[in-house]
Amino acid sequence: MMKKFVKTLLVLAALLLVLMPVASVKAQDTTKKYVIDDADLLTDDEEAQLNEYLKKKSDECKVDIVAVTSKSGYRASDFRKYLADILTDKYGYTGSAASPEAICYGIDISSRVDTLVTGGSTQKTLGQSKEDAIREAAEDIISGAEKSNHAAYYKAIKKYADKSADYLNRGLIHRLTRNMGIKLLISLVVTIIVVGAALYHTKAHMSVSDMTYAKDNSIHLTESRDDYINTTRVRRKKQSGGGGSSSGSGSFSGSNGGSFGSSSGNF
């Protein structure tokens, strides 16, 4: 009986040893904060909701999707480094500390700079154009928004999370059904063209010209006169084209030597 009890204890101990690291990771996951709202741009409820939302998206993509707000008045380059350091210190779904699998969108309300920083293979997966697209999608929402406009910042961070997840989610179903509306529209257009082409058939038409039955050398122009009447003039100004604006972007090295991608702008 005693032996049985000891055996059971040993098994339980072994199980505990095996499960401890998992529990530790789980514990670490639950303590990870996906929204760091130092600038108080969100209400407590919004922050909690976004934290859950970004965590869910992070788990779907196997990439930490983080949002940081600041009121320190960072310039774009300093803000990028600040965010890269945060990613290096605390985040990374997988990968080394120097190149964490993470993406971070930062908003500095004092300098009105917004920056996107990507680490690990995320920067390669996205590339500069998609980084710009993610940041600009969020920036469009907060452009000109006051600090007190919590809804705009909530919406912008949610948009950033959605767009990032859309690009980063490598799940087969997600990738197959991504942009389904556009895919359905393309299919519909192609179907209309193909069926239309099949329905259309070159109907025979009269292929004779006005000269087909004219007898050779039978055309005689007996009168041909062009009388000048007058000249009219219409004067108008030439049309001229418009211009545009640009924002900073590119890759940089973090303080620990890791490589990060970035996209910055002003809102």
């Binding site: 039955y213 004219a214 007996t222 009388d227 000048y228 009447i229 003039r233 108008r236 100004k237």
Partner: peptide
Amino acid sequence: ERHGDYEEEITDHFRAVRQLDVEFDRI
């Protein structure tokens, strides 16, 4: 015609008069 920031459309108007004979064979 273009002059600096402006362009001018000039139209000459004519009245054309024609008289023609033609023979058609086996329509």
